[in-house]
Every structure is written in structure tokens, then in C-alpha cells.
Nucleic acid binder design. Structure first.
Lengths: 254, 254
DNA sequence: AATGAGCTTTGATCTGTGTCAATGCGCTTC
DNA sequence: GAAGCGCATTGACACAGATCAAAGCTCATT
């Protein structure tokens, strides 16, 4: 993973600083602010957001940020790291509903019933900013652009979900994988990482769950892409060699 | 379809009244208000909503309420009738993303880019209340419970989408159909209609698109349910005979 | 350096849905 | 009341992806 300097979230000294306040999330200081919740706010508005923000929290790889059924009080902005969200039914069925990376917001499904309805698990050591939701609502009555942006973020989540429904409902295995890889690529690139070379944080099984495929099919399909010279795969290390080819697969079949 | 009187949305005289104002949507007069957007508001708050609401609009069966790509200005509350929403990709793939009935809110996917991202088509003659979105935002800065309720409605949409993703990602054809029928039943029943006897407004193809199945599979599976004594099917008329059996199918397989 | 656990790859076979095709039913329209 | 059209049903067959099974890799631990 090639990381561009400006986006490194961990090159700050604040963690070891003695003043507690520095442990709070501070949007005004955050280099993700153009990607994240405070997008488009003025300096004075940013300061007010900083006041409202709860603590930053570190989540170890494999640990839950929250679990289905827990009371909902906050949403979370990912400052660094990588998460998966998923639902499990009584009968043990498990479905990954999404993978989230820095600057994305987690937990909005919990608003409707004041309960989290899915699990959020860190796929690598991560850090999130806690955003107390009722505080956010209070502040957003005063800052209209913030209110509007919250709506946009939630709406974007709905649109994203529709995209996944389309994928699950109409695409074949090859198309799903191609779409998945291109989507990851695009999101990494938006964060200043290399667009065509990255490290998968999730297992084949998790990819399969997300895409509605079995892990063997995921593996086989990636191998086929590899053989066809579209990508290079070595375990979790992926290189996109022929993006255009992947795009064609996404659209051509059927 | 057995309809309980109190929920009939069409037994009012206002359509023919000469005063234009009566054509406006009026939440305070609407018997769906406990299901719809104004849920939990006081009388005075309801009056303010009434002021804000745009016109009611009748949509003929088969007509579009909005289409993907159109500028987004309003969301819509369904006053009566039945809709489907769906997305179409450049390459002609078509996916139904949901079926909506009275009291449900349409169009929230358009907020994120100020453009509608899907088509909403009436499956029977319907009537919607237009809710100018920026007006709604303005009002919700003043009425916190309204703001919160908007968030809840959007969040509920996200949770619903996750449910569909689960369905598409992990369930077999029988389970999908069982889940679909039980979901319809539950929603009809919440609106005062019979829970175990209803008329499907959509074609087998539309059901199939929604559930990620081909229309033949939908038809065959319904026939199997019929043969097994779980339901009775005559074209679009459905009777649920053994709800418990359907629930078992939803969970037992796998 | 050896061990083991977890993940991935690959092969052989099976099966649930898709596909293709024919027929039937029930509206709408004239 | 007949004709025609859209939708639904049913059957035969094909195939994508699931399932079962066996190695192979990689990394953490000792």
C-alpha cells in the first residue's frame, strides 16, 4: 500500500501529549475533513463541531466497534483503518453488508430503533471518532449545512446499498468481483493511496459473504482474472493490471 | 383486498371542493399520520407541517413519479396506492429495489446528489404528497422531533436495504419468496388490510427482479407453495394458508 | 527451525436456477 | 362475443456456482 504523506493519520504527536483534550476528535485538525462528515463547513462551524465530538477510540484488529442489539448513542467516523459491517440472523446466517475505510461513517442503521442492527468489526487496527448522535442533531439544528450534509451522508448510504442490491440481484460471479475490485480501487485512490495496487484486509470468505458467493468461487474467479492477465493476486496482495478489462467484464457479460 | 374503513384514503370530499388549498396535502387530516413522516408530532407542529407541504399528486398506474437523473427537489409520502422503485444501468440491467405502499416515503436516495438515482413507478393508480425537501429541512431545524424522525425514516430505509442484501446474498429461492410474502403480509396488516389475503400489484418478473430470481423461478416456487398447501395462488390473488409453514421455510432451509 | 492454525488454492462432482420453448389464462378492445 | 396481448404456468435441458475434499501457503508461536 503506497501511502501519501498528507493522508497519514498517525503522524501526530497528540496521543502521548499529557492534555486530555487532545484525545478528543478534532475535525478542524483532521486531514480527512474533506471526505468526512464536516465537508463544506466554515472554520467557525468546524470549531463548534470539535466541541461536540466525543473521544477518539482505537479498535484493535478483530475487535467489535459495536454489535447488533447494543443501544445506539453515537455514530462513528473512521479516522484510520478498515472495518466490515454485517448482520447475523437467529439461524446463524451471516451477511457482510459493507466494508468501510477512512473518512466513512459507521452506525447510521442504529438510528431507527435506537439499537445497532449490525456488527462493526475492525479488519485492521483502526481509530474512530465518536460522534454522539443527539449532540450532532442538536448542533445540526443550528448549522444548516451540517444538517444537510448528514442527510447527504445517509442518502449516500442508501444509494450505495442499492448498488449492492443491483450487484447481488443481477450480476454473475465475475462481474461481482470485477465491480468489487474497481470499487475498492476507486475508494483507495480517493484517499491518496495507489489505485491499482492494494492489500485486501478481508478474507475470501468475507468477500464472498459480501458478494453473495462462496469463498471457493471468489478464489477461483480471482485466479481466473490472474490467468487472464487482468490482475495479479498473491494472497491478499492485489494489483490491477488491466482496469479497462475489468470494467468490460463488469458490463459485457449479459 | 379487504380494506378497513378508517384507512380508506379516498373517502374524502376535498378533491371536488373549489378551494385550491384543499388540494394541498394536509398531514393533520391524514389518517396515515401515525405511519408516515409526521409520526409523534403535536397538533401545533402538525399545522406547521401542513403549511410546508406541497401539492398532492395523482399518479396513474404505470406512470413515473420520478425517474433516475431528474433533479431532486422533493421527497414523496404515499397517500394511497402502490409503487416500485428500481435502477437501470447503462447496459440495460434492471433491478427493482423496493415496493412501497401507503405511508411510506419515496425519494430519499436523491438527496445525496440532488438527483434522483432511481425510477419510481406507480403499480396502481396512486396518490402522493409532495414534500419539498429544503422546506422540510428548514422546518426540521425548528422542530427537533421532526428532524429526529427524518433521521429515523432514512435509517429505517438503510436497515431495510440490509435485509434485502441478506436475502439476496444468503437465501435460496424458496426462502426469498417466503420472506417476500410474509413481509407483504405484515405491511398490509399494519395498514389495516387483511394479513393473509392480498392482491399482488406487481408481475412475476418484477418480483423476480426484486428477489434476484427469474420470473419462471418465481412462478414455479409459488406453484410449489400452492401444492404444499402453504398458500393459494390464482394469478395475482394470494392467500396465505400456513404462515407458520412459510416462516419455517424462511429459516429451516440451510 | 519446527509446529500448527488459519487462510487459500485447486479439483471433482452435484444441484438449484437459468434458459428456451410451448401452452394457457384472463383482460381489454373492437 | 371474438381477437389479441400481456402475463403466468409448465416442461426439458444446460450450466454457473455450490459442495466436498485434499493440498499448499504464510505467519505467529515456541
Amino acid at each position: 500500500m503506497t501511502q501519501i504523506k498528507a493522508h497519514s493519520a498517525d503522524d501526530e504527536v497528540s496521543y502521548s501529549a499529557p492534555v486530555l483534550k487532545t484525545l478528543k476528535a478534532a475535525c478542524s485538525q483532521c486531514n480527512l475533513r474533506e471526505l468526512c462528515l464536516p465537508l463544506g463547513l466554515s472554520h467557525t462551524e468546524l470549531d463548534r463541531i470539535d466541541e461536540m465530538m466525543g473521544a477518539r477510540r482505537r479498535i484493535k484488529r478483530g475487535a467489535h466497534l459495536y454489535s447488533a442489539g447494543e443501544p445506539f448513542t453515537s455514530i462513528f467516523a473512521i479516522r484510520s483503518g478498515f472495518f466490515k459491517t454485517g448482520v447475523i440472523t437467529e439461524d446463524g446466517r451471516d451477511q457482510v453488508t459493507g466494508f468501510q475505510m477512512a473518512g466513512e461513517v459507521l452506525g447510521m442503521d442504529g438510528i431507527s430503533n435506537e439499537l445497532h442492527t449490525c456488527d462493526a468489526v475492525a479488519l485492521e487496527d483502526s481509530e474512530v471518532c465518536t460522534i454522539p448522535f443527539s449532540e450532532l442533531e442538536r448542533l445540526s439544528t443550528e448549522i444548516r449545512s451540517l444538517q444537510h450534509h448528514i442527510h447527504k451522508v445517509m442518502s449516500r448510504e442508501i444509494v450505495r446499498d442499492h448498488g449492492v442490491m443491483m450487484l447481488l440481484g443481477t450480476m454473475r460471479a465475475e462481474e461481482r468481483l470485477a465491480a468489487f475490485l474497481l470499487n475498492l480501487s476507486q475508494r483507495f485512490s480517493a484517499r491518496g493511496y495507489a489505485a491499482n495496487e492494494f492489500h485486501l484486509r478481508m478474507t475470501r470468505e468475507e468477500i464472498g459473504s459480501y458478494l453473495g458467493l462462496k469463498l471457493e468461487t471468489v478464489s477461483r474467479t480471482l485466479s481466473r482474472f490472474h490467468d487472464d492477465g487482468l490482475i495479479s493476486v498473491q494472497q491478499k496482495h492485489i494489483q490491477l493490471i488491466d482496469q479497462a478489462g475489468l470494467k468490460q467484464i463488469m458490463n459485457t457479460c449479459r
